[in-house]
C-alpha cells in the first residue's frame, strides 16, 4: 500500500532528482548505459506522427551532411586559381585543336553552358580561346569549360572555368563532366557508383540527383582544377 505521504516524498525526490540532473555538469550521474537506454526509450515513446516526421528529417539530415562534407572536400581538393587565357592561334573545333593546344601547354576553352540541360555537343564547338595550364599540371588531354547555372554552387559558380582531364576513370566524390542520354553535358559530383548506374549529384540541394547507366561510360572527364578571373 502506498501512502499519500510516501507519494509526496517521491514527488519531492523526483523534483530534486531533476534539479540534480540539470546541474550535473560532468554528467557524473548519467553514464553511457543510462543515456543509451534513455535514447532508446525516448525514441520508442514517439507517436506515429512524430516518428514519421523524424524519419523524414533524418533522411534530409543525412543527405545534407553528406553534401556538406562533399563541398568541403571539393573546396579543399580544388583551390581557386587565377584564370589565364589567350586567343587560340588556330581556328578549329575542340576536337581538332586538342593536340595543338596540349603541345603549347594549353587547353581549349569553351564558352559553353555545362549546367544541367543546357549543354551542347562539346567536340564540334568552334574554339577560339585557350586556357594556359599552370606549371604544376602535367601535359595531357584537357579541355576547359566555363560553368553555367547554379546547380554546383557553392563549389562551382557561374562563369568560373573548370579544367577537365579527359579519359579518366571516375571515383566516388569526383567532380565529372558527363554526357546525358539527351546529348547534353553536365558537371556533377559522383555520389555513388553501383553495379549498373552512376548517381550524379549537385551541391545545390535544390537539384535532384541524376542516375545514368554506367556502360557505355557517360563520363567525359574529371574536374582537376578550377579557375576564376582575378
Amino acid at each position: 500500500m502506498i501512502s499519500d505521504s510516501d507519494r509526496s516524498v517521491y514527488e519531492l525526490m523526483s523534483a530534486v532528482g531533476r534539479e540534480i540532473e540539470s546541474t550535473d555538469e560532468q554528467l557524473a550521474f548519467q553514464d553511457e548505459k543510462f543515456l543509451s537506454w534513455l535514447a532508446r526509450d525516448l525514441r520508442g515513446a514517439l507517436n506515429n506522427e512524430e516518428r514519421t516526421q523524424d524519419e523524414l528529417d533524418a533522411s534530409d539530415f543525412a543527405r545534407r551532411a553528406l553534401t556538406r562534407l562533399a563541398v568541403r572536400r571539393a573546396e579543399k581538393a580544388l583551390p581557386r586559381r587565377p584564370l589565364r587565357e589567350r586567343t587560340a592561334p588556330i581556328a578549329a573545333t575542340t576536337e581538332q585543336s586538342l593536340t595543338v593546344a596540349s603541345a603549347n601547354r594549353c587547353a581549349t576553352l569553351l564558352d559553353l553552358a555545362v549546367a544541367a540541360g543546357q549543354g551542347r555537343e562539346i567536340w564540334d564547338e568552334p574554339c577560339d580561346r585557350w586556357l594556359e595550364l599552370p606549371g604544376d599540371i602535367s601535359p595531357g588531354r584537357y579541355v576547359a569549360l566555363r560553368v553555367a547555372g547554379d546547380s554546383m554552387t557553392p563549389v562551382l559558380c557561374a562563369r568560373e572555368v573548370i579544367l577537365i582531364q579527359l579519359d579518366s576513370t571516375p571515383r566516388v566524390d569526383d567532380l565529372v563532366v558527363a554526357r546525358l542520354p539527351d546529348q547534353s553535358h553536365v558537371v556533377k559530383r559522383v555520389a555513388s557508383i553501383k553495379d549498373g548506374s552512376i548517381e550524379l549529384a549537385s551541391f545545390n540541394p535544390g537539384y535532384n540527383p541524376i542516375f545514368v547507366a554506367r556502360e557505355p561510360s557517360p563520363v567525359v572527364g574529371t574536374v582537376i582544377a578550377r579557375f576564376t578571373r582575378g
Binding site: Y10, L12, M13, A15, V16, G17, E19, T23, D24, A28
Partner: peptide, 26 residues
C-alpha cells in the same frame, strides 16, 4: 528545490545520486 538539491547532493553516495536522478526521470 535548488537548496534542497544541494543538501541532498552533499550527503548521498554516487549510486544514490544515480538513483535519485533516475527517479526524477521516472
Amino acid at each position: 528545490i535548488v537548496g534542497l538539491a544541494r543538501c541532498v547532493a552533499a550527503e548521498l553516495s554516487d549510486d544514490e545520486m544515480k538513483m535519485i536522478v533516475g527517479i526524477g526521470r521516472h
